[in-house]
Design a protein around this nucleic acid. Structure first.
Lengths: 204, 204
DNA sequence: GGCATTACGCTACGGGTCGTAGCGAAAGCT
DNA sequence: AGCTTTCGCTACGACCCGTAGCGTAATGCC
């Protein structure tokens, strides 16, 4: 999860319960206090551990919040709804529900903000969040191709996958956090329609 | 800009130069230190004013950074490129260029993060940034309808405008700040193609 | 069982930032 | 001139940071 203890086999092992307690306390404190208001001392108190225990495991606030956030994103799955349209609508609503949780929205934006001037943190985010969730797009695209809904191209699919991922995730994040409007089934349907059919065909 | 002085006409007026100096110093400090590292005392020193002068004008870090950010967004314009496709590609590249500036990306994400638990700040962002930039979509849509590129609907255009705004802005923000990939002309073309023609038609 | 090793809780510390208060000087308006 | 407000400056208590040191607890190895 955080700093590894690779070659150490002797001595008292680290409490796994402390890990989960600290991460849970971090999410709780984020909801109540936000990024600026969150202090590691307060997290330690909420988790029922000493402040030094937190510092022994995480280098700072950014790393701790990133790990607390990663545990939330792993809830996403992609059940087969039978069509590309239904699959997209499903994952949009799922992602929106995840972003409805106050801990998710606060942590995601704050960590991305910190990452703009911290290369190591950018790497951590890409590994633990972006790369993992991009698999949803890969799987949905593969299913759609097998169904014959979209053509099987011979070129490198990477750029197209990245584009779809950014459009879907970006739209949901922007709608939820910047425009501050809810993502309901109607909006998910409209977004999916634009994605599949284009603006002209999807006009009101 | 910040706290108003409505009924006060007498006494020494506030220095307008101090305002611009403080906002410029805020953007500069954001680039070097990021959100967490930025302190109002440091901003005051950079701007060449006393710390108390900053506190007299802005209530806190969030409000100051929001105003510093708003001045950056007002650079966006929507020149008439002759077609909806060209207009979209143009504004995508313009928005991406704006987000390339380190001050913009850091400030935008940090302020949005703080706003997740601060209703007054959400309101400030919507008024000073979201509402202003949404006019780009309104104008581009109006032009396209006059050209006959998209149908003129009789229903409320608000939801469709909001959707387009969130898709375009969200995709660019997500691409730039979360996926950490550059927005070049090729990507802008691909995004525009998906928007106008849909996923199936725009496949590689 | 005894021993080395590591993690734990606790306390204390210097350093830094916060946001505010008070002061005298400066700059405008009538 | 006189009044009013802002300005720069200094100082202050409060809080959080991140680390060090201590004694204790929990494991693996001999």
């Amino acid at each position: 999860m955080q700093s590894r203890t690779p070659a150490s086999r002797t001595g008292r092992p680290r409490s796994a319960a402390a890990d989960t307690a600290i991460l849970a306390a971090t999410r709780e404190a984020l909801v109540e206090l936000g990024w600026s208001g969150l202090t590691l001392g307060d997290v330690a108190t909420r988790a029922g551990v000493a402040k030094t225990t937190v510092y022994r495991r995480w280098a700072g606030k950014s790393e701790l919040v990133t790990d607390a956030l990663a545990t939330l994103f792993d809830q996403l799955v992609l059940p087969d709804r039978g069509s590309l349209r239904a699959d997209i609508e499903d994952v949009v609503l799922q992602f929106a529900e995840l972003l409805e949780q106050p801990a998710t929205k606060t942590a995601l934006m704050a960590v991305v903000a910190e990452a703009t001037h911290d290369e190591a943190l950018r790497q951590r985010i890409r590994e633990k969040i972006v790369a993992r969730q991009k698999r949803l797009v890969v799987e949905g695209r593969s299913r759609a191709q097998h169904r014959g809904e979209i053509p099987v191209d011979t070129t490198d699919p990477g750029p197209q996958i990245d584009l779809i991922f950014d459009v879907i995730a970006g739209a949901v994040v922007h709608r939820t956090l910047v425009s501050c409007e809810p993502v309901d089934t109607d909006w998910a349907t409209r977004l999916t329609a634009v994605l599949l059919d284009g603006l002209a065909a999807a006009g009101d």
